[in-house]
Design a protein around this nucleic acid. Sequence first.
DNA 1: TATTATAATAAACTGTGTGTTGATTAATTA
DNA 2: TAATTAATCAACACACAGTTTATTATAATA
Lengths: 196, 196
Amino acid sequence: MIEKLDRRQKYTRKVLKESFIKRMQEKPLSAITIKEVCESADINRSTFYSHYKDIYDLAFQIEDNIIEDISATLSAYNYSKNEEALQMTEKLLEYIAENRDSCQTLFSEHGDPRFQKKVMMLAHTHLLKTLEVENTNVPYNSEYLSLYIANGSIHVVQHWLKSGMKESPKEIAELITKLAKRGLSSFSDTPPMFSI
Amino acid sequence: MIEKLDRRQKYTRKVLKESFIKRMQEKPLSAITIKEVCESADINRSTFYSHYKDIYDLAFQIEDNIIEDISATLSAYNYSKNEEALQMTEKLLEYIAENRDSCQTLFSEHGDPRFQKKVMMLAHTHLLKTLEVENTNVPYNSEYLSLYIANGSIHVVQHWLKSGMKESPKEIAELITKLAKRGLSSFSDTPPMFSI
DNA sequence: TATTATAATAAACTGTGTGTTGATTAATTA
DNA sequence: TAATTAATCAACACACAGTTTATTATAATA
């Protein structure tokens, strides 16, 4: 069921969301009050409550738009095909680069950890699929492997965003893919050892 | 300057900390009020303020004890010696296993993300040292590599704690070390590729 | 153990944000 | 233009934060 929104409602939600993101550039979610978001958006506080349950509900709805976009990007690729993993990662990073403003804020230290967790779980689930399809001989519970890779990767992206995106999406995508596949040995001269 | 504490003060802080951890098992930091912590600890709210600035200050002090312990463990090992990396990881996991109760809560989804970040940065810094000592030919900024490994590892530990610590500290230590060194290729039959 | 010092308590008070309600005003759309 | 619906305004009860002051209880120590 798709909501049909009045122009006024569209405007209200738009400015509330913008005001919220602006606040989040300065302080963490838990320190942001409904009152200040409304004041800076010039929207009556009563109106806020006819759109959102509380401040977390507003945050949730902002985050969800991005989650949906990311999910769509992930679904567009076939994971059983190994070559597409790199392409997909690159595509994802390009999306983030395009939506620099909101992504940078949501992934920052002020960002909602639940959001970051959601993105991570999305990546995690997709990774699990790949691992199970292409690698049936994984000894440990793939759960651990996938969590490791998803979280490592997300923090690389986080650092990339934080430090001003000096590298291209392609470069970061390659770095992430290499680390997942061969870890540190990707970057050393010596051939990888077969036992530690 | 070491604070010399009255018995009464020791008791007050002890029960407040215990009460806080108990609350945190049920809800996130941001939802915990000073009022409820004091009531469940049977300590007057005024007394709370003579010990802590606010609820975050209390959280901070609990977390700091653990941070110090972890830091001490990390410092006890020589990172330039490759063999010790595994030993150290194991030692760290043993510490966590011993302090199961508080660690499990602090690392859970209700736990303070700042704490988790602090632990991560600690691991990150120590890792950087190793990387720089033993691997001078790392092409990228080691920052990325270290962040990747530290975060991946922490989430493996988090999952381990959450799912009831079925594996031994040794097993998890080996898993983490393998993933860092050779990534997924540690677990596949086929020899690792030299380019992706 | 009696004295002194200090910590904890109790009660009151101000302040700030929350969440709700009902009447009023303004904008939208058909 | 009329009917509908959204936003505003003002007022309210409520909960928790943070501070203050006087009082009571406990600990350290001479």
